[in-house]
Design a protein around this nucleic acid. Sequence first.
DNA 1: CGCGAGTTTGAGAGAAGTCAAAGTGTGTGG
DNA 2: CCACACACTTTGACTTCTCTCAAACTCGCG
Lengths: 251, 251
Amino acid sequence: MSQSRVANQVSCAVCAFNPLCHSRAAHIGAPSPVEERRRLTRGDTLYAAGSPNDTLFAVRAGFMKAVSVQPNGLRHTVRFLFPGNIAGLDGCATGRRVTEAVALDDCEVCKISTHRIDTIADFSPTFSAHMRRLLAHEVADAHEHSAALACLPVRARVAHFVLSLGDRWKQRGFSATSFRLPMTRVEIAAHLALTPETLSRELTWLARQGLLRHQRRSIEILDPPALRALIAGGNAATYRHEEAAEESMIS
Amino acid sequence: MSQSRVANQVSCAVCAFNPLCHSRAAHIGAPSPVEERRRLTRGDTLYAAGSPNDTLFAVRAGFMKAVSVQPNGLRHTVRFLFPGNIAGLDGCATGRRVTEAVALDDCEVCKISTHRIDTIADFSPTFSAHMRRLLAHEVADAHEHSAALACLPVRARVAHFVLSLGDRWKQRGFSATSFRLPMTRVEIAAHLALTPETLSRELTWLARQGLLRHQRRSIEILDPPALRALIAGGNAATYRHEEAAEESMIS
DNA sequence: CGCGAGTTTGAGAGAAGTCAAAGTGTGTGG
DNA sequence: CCACACACTTTGACTTCTCTCAAACTCGCG
């Protein structure tokens, strides 16, 4: 089947702006805060670094990547965006984007102006708090990514990545162990700070150990506990902590 | 002189909560939102991961580090906090802290309950937007750190770190080229995802090239352009971008 | 059917880590 | 006030991991 049909994976249900879209619209009979939907195809840039930061986008269907662009020219894929994720949150700090968002395949996004966000936030403390939650979650995700880059050897980093993709599928009601990768090896490698060759070798190694199966864009996780053990064993400083309360926010 | 006197480097002027502390207090004759000041000495944990997330802290004097603690046990120093920085912002997402904050030397912090934050945010859209700005800035910082870890070879990473410390001193009105390091080599190494030995070697190399001088806790940057060139040259994918508008937020 | 992007595999080089030990400064207790 | 102890830092030799360069392979698409 063609994976590139936009109709796939439309998930308003898990959208981080769902509360905004629904409770408000229902409440005051107002139309959805979404001003416009936009369609993208693989490679399209939704917004570029340096562009004015006047819009948020909710990914409605398809997948994107968020690339942080530093003034000194550094570029790094900080995050992959799944349906329901919000793009452009980070730019509230200044008037300009500091990331760019690029479509990994055919996508549909909901456009919401920050002006409208501000307006709603002004008279809805609840929504304002929701925005803070979204941002704080973004911070936590970014920290998790840094920690993975800093603390995990390559093998564990790959394991961690695969498991985290599974978690995100699970949050959306799909299988956590069997799914398609929306991005290429090169894109994964860039995100994990390694070369495509090394990534390929590590996937092959994991497959040989019977921990997963992989073929091009498809992944099947065979032994999650073993993968988790790999992560825990891989990092030098393994501190045990009480289990954190499960996270309700969709990432 | 004793560097550990708390009296050093008290900077309300650059505090991210300065607008809250001053304009509001002046406006309605209210007392400062700061409920309490707390003193810490080297090694003290201001708050631990997993603790209830009911307080923000502004670092008034001294230095701290923010350590992200993952459920799987990963620990990574995501950020060093300078006077004026806010600790605890990331935890707005859930009821529990996902980082811990540890004093690098004698510190004084201003404690502000999130309850009070929420209260103020509820009737001050300006303040609410300010909070969003702070959080977004935190996201951008985290992304910058990831990008540095992912894209820069060790040498450039060290150069980047040294320059960024200089920038932060400059933002506070001090020399950008000559300052004391508030943290040990081990702590820097953990932040930069390398070993203390490698860090030491790289610093020595930079010194031999005449780019900086270093002795224990003191650093003198001798050739900022050369260090910047090292960073630009170091990363494989060097894209040039129009200069970003200078950033007013204190980090 | 053949091209090309994407992926895998292999061999060799180089960068950073590990282990070990020697300096160097700071603070404390005699 | 001095001397010792300890924590921190630096240096060296060696190992290992990951990258680089090169080539073969595979699959989807024109």
